[in-house]
């Protein structure tokens, strides 16, 4: 990989400052970025590690819901969110493998917005709020297609706040090689309705399956989505599955997530 300066600020303010320089790039665990750098697909002049910032770490329950610091590793979320938001904790506990979960962070995952990542489904499915150093962004506004988000240049995610649903579950069907989601569905049942978010399937990245949301809001049972169909249009087709297969999985996994929700 190309060389760069490595800095590890201990406050958000210092991180923002470091990232304002030319060619600076944030590193938040690096489980995706590091392999990218090895391939020389990115060429930052400064890499700013965000994992040394104490105020960006931790899981805590508050009035707005469950807040997770952006630099919190998946393994910590899996452990510490288990009581307050078990569906989300289980999602975090299923990302990558244990070593990846010890380094990868929620902020890093959301900033990258890989179309097959798990967290975007949990965040969109929960209707969470992404908190940055500048503003708060609703999940519905945040995800803007594969690897594209509402973040501005130099903007840092500092945390995510999740309203906690009555019931939720995430069901992932692994891509057999990478074990990212070939398709993954997050279902969350709130008092005001159901949200269904799908990752891995669409060329447009994570999306809400609104027909299923309507059906499940009326009747939160797997049978409620039985009559629905998912269009394969705009679904990803690759050697691990056709668009039709992914479309099919969306429905199967939604039913399973509904059945598993607790």
């Amino acid at each position: 990989m190309h060389n760069f300066d490595f800095v590890k600020p201990s406050s958000i303010a210092d991180a923002v400052k470091a990232l304002s320089g030319d060619g600076a790039q944030a590193l938040s665990g690096g489980q995706t970025l590091t392999p990218t750098l090895k391939q020389r697909l990115a060429q930052p002049s400064v890499l700013v590690s965000l994992t040394g910032i104490a105020e960006m770490k931790g899981v805590c329950m508050g009035a707005d819901g469950l807040s997770i610091g952006a630099a919190t590793p998946h393994a910590v979320v899996a452990r510490e969110a288990a009581k307050d938001y078990p569906g989300l904790a289980a999602l975090a506990g299923g990302i990558g493998d244990p070593a990846v979960r010890n380094r990868g962070t929620i902020g890093g995952s959301l900033a990258n917005n890989d179309p097959a990542a798990c967290y975007p489904a949990g965040v969109l499915g929960s209707g969470a709020t992404i908190v940055t150093n500048k503003r708060k962004i609703a999940a519905d506004d945040y995800f803007q297609g594969m690897f594209t988000t509402a973040l501005d240049e130099g903007e840092i995610i500092t945390g995510v706040t999740f309203p906690v649903p009555q019931k939720a579950a995430y069901v992932k069907f692994n891509q057999p090689a990478s074990r990212f989601a070939l398709t993954g569905v997050f279902v969350a049942k709130f008092a005001g309705g159901v949200r269904v978010a799908v990752t891995g399937a669409s060329n447009n990245g994570v999306f809400r399956w609104t027909e299923a949301e309507a059906a499940l809001s009326a009747n939160f049972a797997a049978a409620a989505v039985e009559g629905l169909t998912v269009s394969p249009e705009d679904m990803i087709g690759d050697l691990h599955g056709t668009p039709e297969y992914r479309a099919h999985l969306v429905k199967v996994l939604t039913k399973r997530a509904v059945a598993a929700a607790h």
Binding site: P35, T51, R103
Partner: peptide
């Protein structure tokens, strides 16, 4: 490997298993 998949490089950092090929030395200061 070079994609953080194989795990031949796993070490413990502060008691946690991590893939040492996917962590910068300076991050382990």
């Amino acid at each position: 490997c070079d994609t953080s998949q194989c795990g031949a490089c796993v070490v413990h950092v502060d008691g946690k298993a991590v893939k040492s090929c996917t962590m910068f030395a300076l991050d382990a200061a």
